[in-house]
Amino acid sequence: MTQPKNPLHGFTLEQIVTALVNHYGWAKLAEQIDINCFKKDPSIKSSLTFLRKTPWAREKTEALFIATKLYQQ
């Protein structure tokens, strides 16, 4: 079933975090979303672990991805 109005459809959390890191870099991403997994010894793996366990942080990350329109590239 397709979700044409869902801009996150077809993107994994790993793809979202990777795109944000490529676009902003870790330091700027940490300024945009103030969470330790982006500030202290950041990595894709540790960020994914935290975001999967923390719904509010995941929502902020997904919202930033949509706001920066990285899904349209």
Rank of each mutant, 00 (worst) to 15 (best):
T12V: 14
T12Q: 09
R52Q: 07
L8C: 13
L8E: 13
L48V: 08
Q72E: 11
G25K: 00
T12L: 13
F50W: 14
H23E: 03
I33Q: 02
N22W: 07
L70F: 02
C37M: 12
A63H: 12
A19K: 09
K60N: 11
V21A: 02
D41Q: 10
T12I: 15
Q15E: 15
A27I: 01
T54G: 05
L51A: 03
Q15G: 11
N22R: 07
A19W: 10
T18G: 03
W56R: 09
T2H: 12
L48Q: 11
F38H: 05
Y71T: 04
T54W: 11
N6W: 14
S47I: 07
T12R: 07
G10V: 06
L51W: 04
T2P: 13
S43T: 14
K69I: 05
D41K: 14
P55E: 12
L70H: 04
L51Q: 05
K45W: 11
V17A: 02
P7V: 03
H23L: 01
P4M: 02
L13A: 13
Y24F: 11
S43G: 04
D34N: 12
R52L: 03
I33N: 01
A63V: 04
Q72R: 14
L20P: 08
H9Y: 15
N22D: 11
T49I: 15
I16Y: 00
C37W: 06
M1R: 12
Q73K: 15
P4A: 03
I66S: 15
P42W: 01
K69W: 09
R52Y: 12
S46V: 11
E59Q: 13
K53I: 09
L51I: 10
V17T: 04
L51Y: 08
S46M: 10
Q73W: 05
F11G: 14
Q32I: 00
Q73C: 08
D34W: 02
F38A: 01
K53Q: 13
I33C: 00
F65C: 05
W56S: 12
K40P: 05
T61A: 10
N6A: 01
F38W: 02
Q32M: 06
K60A: 05
E14G: 08
T49M: 12
